[in-house]
Amino acid sequence: MRDHRRAGEFEAFVAGAAGRLLHTATLLTADPDTAERLLTAALARTYADWDRLRGEDPYDYARQDLAARFARTAWRRRRPRGGVLARLTPQERLVLVLRLYEGVEEEQTAAQLGLPADRVRAICLRSVTALRSRAPSPVPPRMPRRPLGARAEPAP
């Protein structure tokens, strides 16, 4: 009976939180398959520790585990091939996603990553600056000019 109640509580949690956590993982990894594996591992850890959470927010717990797993494995993927955050390093991505997307306080982010709060602030500012300073987009090719007196052909 207890396991059934526990499973029901966890299913309700996953139904409400999995979408946002998957989006967070996708922002970090820029790869849906890797993000799904990362989320699955974080949710498995959360389920294993479900009874020990006692008053802790399971979303925070799962997000912390997800971030820790990403930080441990980020050295394998220096920079992702795509995504909005592709120009950032894994550490910059992690700080930016935690601070701006997830809304985690600076001190809490610093404690979770084992960094001073000033360093987290600097990383976040550098990341935002890097994203805002996009390289100028290439000039679109010019359309060939029609000779004077030539009429445009009607569209089919």
Rank of each mutant, 00 (worst) to 15 (best):
M1R: 12
R2T: 14
R2E: 15
H4D: 07
A7V: 12
A7R: 12
E11K: 10
V14F: 04
A15H: 02
H23R: 11
T24Q: 06
A25E: 07
L28V: 04
T29D: 13
D31V: 10
T34D: 13
A35K: 01
R45K: 06
Y47P: 06
Y47G: 12
W50Y: 13
D51V: 08
G55C: 09
P58G: 10
A62N: 07
Q64L: 07
L66D: 07
A68T: 12
T73A: 01
T73I: 01
A74N: 04
R76C: 03
R77D: 00
P80F: 03
G82Q: 08
L85K: 10
A86I: 00
A86T: 00
Q91K: 13
E92A: 14
R93E: 09
L96T: 05
L98N: 09
Y101L: 15
Y101D: 15
E106R: 15
A111R: 12
Q112E: 02
G114D: 07
G114A: 02
V120D: 10
V120P: 12
V128A: 13
R132Q: 15
S133I: 08
P140V: 13
P140Q: 08
P141F: 03
P141C: 07
R142H: 05
R145E: 08
G149W: 03
P154S: 10
P154C: 01
